[in-house]
């Protein structure tokens, strides 16, 4: 019925791939890799488009999105706050040390840190953290459903698994990623302010300097939150839906979900940042 379960980006088990490469030769293996990527991109696109379609046309099960918000969002709050808090401390400490070498002037440390946080770091690092937790969870859950043939049963009942499985996670992630990144960014900034106060004697009211943050920074950061919030469930769901071969396959699907989500975040970061710099120069 759909490409998601019938074709796999990497159909052969790891131990058999060397044999395939030997058969195809060097040029053939490059071609195979490109074909795999093309197929994966098409499947990913298919999942994304169908998700968008079901967001507007699908049947919503009561409580499904709320449940996913709890799973993706609420249960990630502590994790993401702790990681971003530490990352904030490290970033300010390191940049403070670097700044100290050049000019011992910390008046603009907070302003530059806040700009970086709003424009990039809060969204990108927060989303990478989320990808490890949420992406792995989604892929494992859907993957195990696939290998226990629950997804096939859904299809047999003329229900698209995208509508029942992916859309609630997509909507929940869209909202909760933004919320989590806003909270995580605040935590990172506060921990950074504390670090600056302790190590560089920068008072918090000096550190909290909004001077360098403009609408361009804010919109770039907001767009990133939205893009990552959409990318994590789509990529992870696609990895979960393309699971095959028992519990080992579920493990592989989880790994691929984390890797591909992180990759998607970094690639999206590149393009959105470039667009941000083009649209809002300076």
């Amino acid at each position: 019925m759909s490409a998601t379960t019938e074709t796999h980006p990497d159909p052969s088990p790891p131990d058999a791939s060397e044999g395939v490469e030997a058969e195809l030769g060097f040029v053939g293996s490059i071609g195979a890799a490109f074909l795999d990527i093309a197929v994966a991109a098409r499947e990913l696109y298919s999942v994304f488009v169908r998700t968008l379609y079901y967001v507007f046309r699908g049947k919503r099960v009561k409580g499904a999105v709320l449940h996913q918000m709890n799973e993706i969002g609420v249960k990630s709050v502590a994790f993401i706050c702790i990681t971003m808090g530490f990352i904030g401390m490290i970033l300010v400490y390191q940049s403070g040390l670097q700044a100290k070498r050049v000019v011992p002037d910390f008046t603009m440390l907070g302003a530059t840190y806040l700009e970086l946080l709003v424009r990039d770091f809060a969204a990108s690092i927060g989303a990478l953290m989320l990808a490890t937790r949420v992406g792995a969870g989604i892929a494992a859950e859907i993957g195990s459903m696939v290998v226990t043939e629950q997804v096939d049963a859904l299809r047999m009942s003329a229900a698209d698994p995208i509508d029942y499985l992916v859309v609630p996670r997509f909507l929940a992630s869209l909202v909760m990623t933004l919320a989590l990144i806003v909270i995580a960014g605040t935590v990172a900034f506060c921990s950074g302010a504390a670090t600056a106060y302790v190590f560089f004697d920068v008072r918090p009211d000096i550190f909290f300097n909004m001077q360098l943050v403009d609408v361009g920074d804010f919109l770039t950061g907001f767009t990133k939150c939205m893009a990552y919030g959409a990318a994590i469930p789509i990529v992870s769901s696609w990895c979960g839906l393309s699971t095959f071969g028992g519990s080992e396959g579920v493990g592989w699907a989880t790994t691929r979900a984390v890797v591909n989500s992180s990759l998607a975040i970094i690639i999206l970061n590149f393009f959105i940042s470039a667009a941000g710099f083009l649209i809002f120069p300076g």
């Binding site: 969002g73 609420v74 933004l178 806003v182």
Partner: peptide
């Protein structure tokens, strides 16, 4: 309890935003 938790997280984020 789930509703309350989700609502609280969203509310905090919205306030900060």
């Amino acid at each position: 309890s789930i509703e309350v938790k989700v609502g609280a997280v969203i509310l905090v984020a919205l306030t900060i935003l």
